[in-house]
Amino acid sequence: MAFEFDRITVRRAGRLVLDEVTAWIPAAGITVISGPSGAGKTTLLRLCNRLEVPDEGTVRYRGQPLDELDPLVLRHRVGMVFQRSVPFPGSVADNLAVAHPDAHAGEMSAALARVALDPGLLAQEARTLSGGELQRMSLARTLVTEPETLLLDEPTSALDAQPKQVFENTARELAAQGITIVWVTHDSAQAGRVADRIYQLRDGHMTRATGKAAP
């Protein structure tokens, strides 16, 4: 089991964002958390690498409560790609070096190749990449730390159909390589395309998982 959510409650500014959510996410394949905007999906994802902590309840990663794990080690094991990719100043190589300062050119090229980006882009200014390239560069930036799990927060919401499909294919390939993927989306069609199992989150409540590999 990758993640276990045990009666998780999160309140923000007096509003109940997650209400005693209990669920578990298997290590294999792609788990999609779907639901409308404001349902608490992003909050649930941010709990997984401790960018946020719950007010009540326990999140466990591979059996260990997150508050017993070193957050810096956890974030190397559990990478995250955000809805709005932010390039750091400098080239694509500079961006990858933020994640892995000791990475050599070969490792960086391999990381770009894993996300279907031309390794020739390494020297390019990151801010000049297209939206699709930027999102895949963010994925490569996360992959260069060799995480075992990827958290994807609406990673294709700003992309057109073609780059969206490329990203989905890349994610499927990564899952096939053994990387656990937790994917948040409000796009039910996309959820159907990429998911091995789907959780629905609505008004802070989680439904039972559905799909071909539901736990």
Binding site: L51, L72, R75, H76, F82, R84, V86, A99, R141, T145
Partner: peptide
């Protein structure tokens, strides 16, 4: 204002002091 950027650095495993340096 650059919370997204700071959290992207934190999510890559940078300690807060290093993430805040720029």
């Amino acid at each position: 204002d650059k919370r997204d950027e700071v959290e992207a650095r934190l999510a890559l495993g940078q300690p807060s002091r290093q993430a805040a340096t720029p």
